[in-house]
Amino acid sequence: MSAPATVRPPRASGTQRAAAQRTARSLGRRRAVNVIMLGVMYVAALVAVLPLIFILWHLAREGASSISLDFFTKMPKPVGEAGGGMGNAIAGTLVLLGIASAIGLPIGIGAGLYLAEQRTARLATAVRFLSDVLNGLPSIVMGIFAWQFLVRPIGHFSAAAGGIALGAMMIPLVTRTTEEMIRLVPVSLREAALALGYTRWRTSLSIVLRTALPGIVTGALVAVARIAGETAPLLFTAFGNQFWSLSLDQPVSALPLQIFSYAISPYDEWHRLAWAGALVLIALVLIISLISRLVTRSRLGGGGD
């Protein structure tokens, strides 16, 4: 039996006293339900945050001891030998992120500018919707796409194919944050520039985009952080490499790929390296998230005019 949603005022009849008592009793119970649900919500929030805390704690405990200068500069050692690092994987990840950004940022920002300026155009509505859909596609599908589109015709795995797969994932992310950040720029600034005799493109680039730039940079960083940890698309494209390679048309190692293969290996030494690699990856993500949080907050807090 659930508590009634509304309080009925006591009726002015012979049963007034009884009704009043009943109301008081049910009011008490409804208050109790209210307090209990409040408690349940607090517990839910706590439980939701717990896995994060556990993950961060385990990463720090298992990974921190293996992090040293060697980890960033040395190559992986063969099985059975202690030491070694993930230098080639870290370099490979940087190469992949470079290619992805070179593709994802200009296209994403350009499309975002279009969405912010042609707000009501039919193409804008479609692009907005489809970038949300694209954003929800599994990353492994991006890998299959890049494999069929690039790796197969070319005949071998390559850093370029991996970077393109990751860049395609960046496009919808960057498009949407760019649009959102540009929308925060007051229309009056655009009008002021136009009234000064600025052309539309100069107004867009040197006034509007320039004003929104801190937010867009943050959004770009968040997008980079998100694809930095992507593994599935790289299985079909960058593939992984035991050796140093920065060549774009050769297979290349990447931090998440290396974490994956070490994690499922049977060797303790490799497990340690996997934890250390995961810690590095998470540190990157955490730092970028914190920066973006601070930038967005200062924008919201200090933007008074």
Binding site: L52, H271, A278
Partner: peptide, 24 residues
């Protein structure tokens, strides 16, 4: 802070979840 922490769950790479899953 709570919203930030919950959002952070979405930022953790899948492979890190896998690693944590295997060993913890």
């Amino acid at each position: 802070p709570v919203a930030f922490l919950v959002d952070l769950l979405a930022a953790i790479p899948s492979v890190v979840y896998g690693l944590w899953g295997i060993f913890v």
